[in-house]
Design a protein around this nucleic acid. Sequence first.
DNA 1: CGAGTTTGACCTGCGC
DNA 2: GCGCAGGTCAAACTCG
Length: 218
Amino acid sequence: MAAVGARPVLYHHPAPAGDAASMSSYFSHGGSSTTTSSASSFSAALAPTTTALAEQFDISEFLFDDAGVAGAPGVFADGAPPVVVSDAAAAGGGGAISAAAGSVAAAAEAVPERPRTERIAFRTRSEIEILDDGYKWRKYGKKSVKNSPNPRNYYRCSTEGCNVKKRVERDKDDPSYVVTTYEGTHNHVSPSTVYYASQDAASGRFFVAGTQPPGSLN
DNA sequence: CGAGTTTGACCTGCGC
DNA sequence: GCGCAGGTCAAACTCG
């Protein structure tokens, strides 16, 4: 797994209060290499769309990309944390990412490789649990987890042939935060309107670059 | 009636 | 081997 340097850069522009539909969010693919799908799956999975939740959408912490590394929060396969640029996070709960990166990277080196399942988790401040990322999810399970008063919900992408899963649970320390974990890579573009979707030539995967027409980003 | 949700049961991995 | 906890299945149910 070489050249994993593609680090996703996430820009988040909070919507004006009461006007969620005007929110624009886009993701840029922070590198030329897509030999690993971490960045592309991240982009495809997380593009928030224009729904009522937008004003609450606040990506504050990137927890981990599994990448076959158990217990290595907040890091991609190369040990570099994703770059999160969020206007809202700047005013809110961001900042834990870079602090965690160093120790995490060290931990990653010590863990032997195992078959990777692309997993990516992040914490958002949201009143609702189901962040509309543009994909259609079907709930298939709910489970109470130990050491947490909040149940964990299990969702699968309902698009035929796509077996991406996500887990959603409220942060046990701060219920105002929702921890979402995506697992797998979508093999299709978002069912919602996608204005800039690209397909990686090497992997064939799609990743969403934006969900708003270019003119609306201003 | 079809799609999605709920929820108890079942399966599996892991630590002791 | 056993028990626990997390993850998944599937039948019943709800809703549009």
